[in-house]
């Protein structure tokens, strides 16, 4: 096996991992603090991608488009939280799953009505569409490096917010015991709205980063949503640290698995069987990983809640 190729694939895995982290961060916070299962979190990724693509089109500038899309996502987060999700906090998980399932149908269709069924693409400005040869003989797209950088920066920012600020203190307190936060005289409603909107911004950011890479289309959020759930379950609900570790692990396992599994299998079985079983096993790999981890640690790697 070519070690340089392995290194390049590790980069690919890292890039996918930080993308998953952006999505999972908001999901795990909302889950941990408000105890809300939000299936419509994937829709936020989609909305972010659509807004960014549209704003980039309007302003004709990639940076300006993103700068507009970020506050817009915050607004979307606030609106969704206030109108629908707020009423769901006191409901059981089942009700939440169903109501947010309904939201997914609604969002996908409303996007289709507004933007049409045709996939959109936001191109990249010249300064981002090049590639650099960080690994000899394998030029790597600059934009993917940027995604890795943004992802790691956001992770650092979230870490600092959670560990160092008053908001972070409340978040930590809320994740372990939200009655206590209320008892402290904090406007818990406002805190919840803020946390949800922040999560929406991160999810939206993931969508904005995905836009130039893949098609922007109705329903694009759902496959990512399921992966993000796998991430936060493996990481332990409510744990940012867990989400980060799990996101990188899932990103690596998925990327490396799907490329190398067929190659490895070819050493043991016939080529045709390896070609069939390889991709299948690769797509099952992260679910197998998740089930295995849950069997050993039923509350994930870094359980946040105590009690």
């Amino acid at each position: 096996m070519d070690p340089l190729l392995l290194l390049e694939q590790a980069f690919n895995g890292l890039q996918f991992g930080v993308m998953l982290f952006l999505i999972a961060a908001g999901l795990t916070l909302v889950f941990g603090i408000m105890d809300l299962v939000n299936l419509a979190h994937g829709s936020l990724v989609m909305i972010g991608a659509y807004l960014a693509t549209t704003f980039i089109g309007w302003t004709d500038s990639f940076i300006l488009g993103l700068l507009l899309a970020i506050p817009a996502m915050f607004l979307v987060g606030v609106v969704v939280e206030v109108i629908v999700l707020r009423t769901l906090y006191l409901r059981n998980h089942l009700d939440q799953v169903l109501a947010t399932f309904g939201l997914i149908l609604f969002f996908n269709e409303i996007i289709r009505i507004i933007w049409g069924p045709i996939s959109l693409y936001s191109g990249l400005p010249d300064y981002l569409s090049g590639h650099v040869e960080i690994i000899p003989g394998a030029p790597y797209p600059v934009f993917r490096l940027l995604i890795i950088a943004v992802g790691l920066l956001v992770a650092l920012a979230i870490y600092l917010i959670v560990a160092r600020t008053r908001l972070g203190m409340l978040i930590r307190a809320g994740a372990s015991n939200n009655e206590m936060v209320g008892a402290l005289g904090i406007d818990i409603k406002l805190l919840f709205t803020l946390v949800f909107a922040l999560g929406a911004v991160f999810a939206g950011l993931a969508g904005m980063m995905l836009g130039p890479l893949t098609s922007v289309e109705p329903g694009m959020g759902e496959p990512l949503l399921i992966l993000a759930f796998v991430v936060i379950i493996i990481g332990g609900i409510g744990s940012i640290r867990g989400a980060f570790v799990a996101a990188i692990v899932v990103g690596m396992v998925d990327t490396v698995g799907r490329v190398f599994l067929p190659v490895v299998l070819r050493a043991f079985v016939s080529d045709a069987a390896a070609d069939t079983a390889g991709p299948a096993l690769a797509s099952m790999l992260i679910y197998i990983l998740m089930a295995a981890i849950l069997v050993v640690r039923p509350r994930g790697l870094f359980p946040a809640r105590t009690g």
Binding site: V84, A99, G102, L105, F106, F107, E109, I110
Partner: peptide, 9 residues
């Protein structure tokens, strides 16, 4: 589906 979703909610 745009009607179905809100019905479910």
């Amino acid at each position: 589906m745009v009607v179905m979703g809100p019905i479910l909610i």
